[in-house]
Design a binder for these strands. Structure first.
Lengths: 328, 328
DNA sequence: TAAATAAATTAAACCGGTTTTATTTTACGC
DNA sequence: GCGTAAAATAAAACCGGTTTAATTTATTTA
């Protein structure tokens, strides 16, 4: 049988309370006894059981995270930051891929708080979390009600930057491929694009719907190629879509950026590795992660009287997929 | 305060034992009382607390999973299958991205079992899990000791298939870009390639080291382009590497598959979307996930006297990135 | 209908920690 | 050396479930 706190106490010749105090780093233990307890713990390979501790303390030290997919290097970066930062504060992160079956994780009080990173059933999750009074944070979320904490990137501003970059290079025939309108980020990116174009006194070459996937870019480019009329620049709502555009154009013998410029959004890992390396709008993944943890921990310690609303600024990263239009 | 089992019992006019029996689907409860209990639970919005249950039962109903990265659609597919299948059996999955800080999750008895999906610190994890007597399964693992359960794909056979596909098309100058030799899968793939070439009486055009990343393919192709001598076909140890090769070649004006054929390994999501769509060796992700869950549950129920060793066969998926060499 | 048996319920102990309250030990000032 | 305050320890209750053993209730059989 595994060692319990009683075994440690007995062997150290002390009470369980003293051992518990050592476990919790309380100052009221004589240094001599503290060392003795730690020594015995090592001897017995003792580790406190999370279940017993959670039951007594009423908290689990576990933060849950729900997300729609794992196959996304931007998510990966956000998660890594969150995981490390939580660990430094004594909390652990548990990830769940969103599916109809998963809400049990917080129904059973297994986590102290939840971070929702663009999950699929967000509305249902929020309702459930409200009912169970579990604090949560939304990252990049569709519908941030005023009563919940959320972290969003200023997608509107990012799109304006993207469009202005192309405009500054001299482009006039600029197309935009959107993301799924379900996401607020998609809608904001489109709005920013349209705004910048209007400011420049230009009409978009085209605005076509996409799905944040390589296939979206392929399809859009194919259609333009088939129609025999290409834009001089494309602003794709995300990097995968941008890569699809470039891939289809190159396969048809069109050079990027010589014939057509392409800019993406997110700065996924693949963006810098692709050829040509992708000009894009960088989302501050580490920043997002850091903010998420700070807000969550403040909320758990009751130090956050009002919900936090954080808006972060994205950043233009100029690489090799954009250039002046051919004529100039 | 949240409702406890005592509140439910009192309101239903029954004992806590009866309520507990209902929770655990035991047959010794009168149907009338069972319904009454369920009704009260709904009224009070009662949900049993995982910590209390875990403490009493000595099990958590949680399976942990360690992995090195999330940014991989093959992992994504495996995880999805595992998650759904576990949920159907009343277990939950908790994911951890491998880092130096994370082993606490199983040190504190938070999980009943662990699935290691190519994590980074695999040896350290295995030692820790052995010490804590927590059952675990290795997927695609470097060093499967005879005493542990593992699921591997027959990478050797997959590579032979890949090489034979190219050979059957008439290729003779075939290059291979490996994965990191740290992984057993990399070594097996290289071994399979060399074997098939030897069988055909041919020497490899080249065997160059890679890292399972787009950049690896880019670099290899760049070097061949710079040297002015290209293979007629490339077998990349994974799809990302293959895409790197194609991207670099296309950027240099070399057509795939007309000038050079390229085959990958894994069948990542991007493989079918890329242009040209990638010929590759498909890893049976769903199969792997299913096996992992079945073995894990059998182990937990003590129905698995000896460790399971499962070897699954990969499958050739012919798409558009391979063709006969130009001369033929 | 009574006795025997099976089914359902209850009370109490337990899982392994933490926390509160009461008590003992130690340290300090005079 | 004594009284008192502060520090450390001990005993017991608690967190919210499950499980065992004992008891009551319902059902079957003679």
């Amino acid at each position: 049988m595994k060692a319990s706190i009683y075994d440690v106490a007995k062997r150290a010749g002390l009470s369980v309370v003293t051992v518990s105090r050592v476990l919790n780093n309380e100052s009221t233990v004589r240094e001599k006894n503290r060392l003795k307890v730690l020594e015995v713990m090592r001897e017995l390979d003792y580790h406190p059981k999370a279940a017993a501790r959670s039951l007594a303390k009423g908290k689990t030290n576990l933060i849950g995270m729900m997300l729609s997919t794992l196959d996304d290097s931007f998510f990966d970066a956000v998660i890594k930051e969150i995981s490390d930062r939580l660990a430094a504060k004594g909390y652990y992160l548990t990830l769940s891929v969103d599916s109809d079956l998963s809400p049990m994780l917080f129904q059973e009080d297994r986590v102290d708080g939840v971070i929702l990173l663009s999950p699929i059933n967000e509305i249902a999750h929020m309702r459930e979390l409200d009912k169970r009074k579990i604090p949560y944070i939304l990252i990049d979320h569709q519908h941030p009600a005023p009563s919940v904490s959320s972290i969003v990137v200023d997608n509107y501003a990012g799109s304006v930057m993207a469009a202005n970059h192309l405009l500054a290079l001299g482009h006039k025939d600029i197309a935009h491929i959107t993301g799924p309108p379900l996401f607020l980020s998609s809608r904001e990116r489109e709005r920013g694009f349209r705004h910048a174009m209007r400011e420049a006194g230009l009409a978009p070459f085209a605005v076509v719907p996409g799905e944040f996937q390589i296939a979206s870019g392929l399809e859009a480019a194919d259609r333009w190629l088939a129609a025999g009329r290409l834009p001089t620049a494309v602003f794709a709502a995300d990097d995968y879509t941008a890569i699809g555009v470039i891939t289809a154009l190159q396969a048809a013998g069109v050079r990027v950026p010589r014939d057509v410029s392409v800019i993406g959004f997110d700065d996924q890992v693949i963006a810098s590795q692709y050829r040509p390396a992708l000009t894009t709008i960088r989302q501050p993944a580490e920043h997002i992660g850091r903010q998420a943890v700070d807000i969550m921990l403040a909320t758990l310690q009751g130090e956050l009287p009002t919900p936090a609303k954080v808006e972060l600024k994205p950043e233009l990263v100029v690489r090799a997929s954009t250039a002046k239009p051919r004529g100039e």
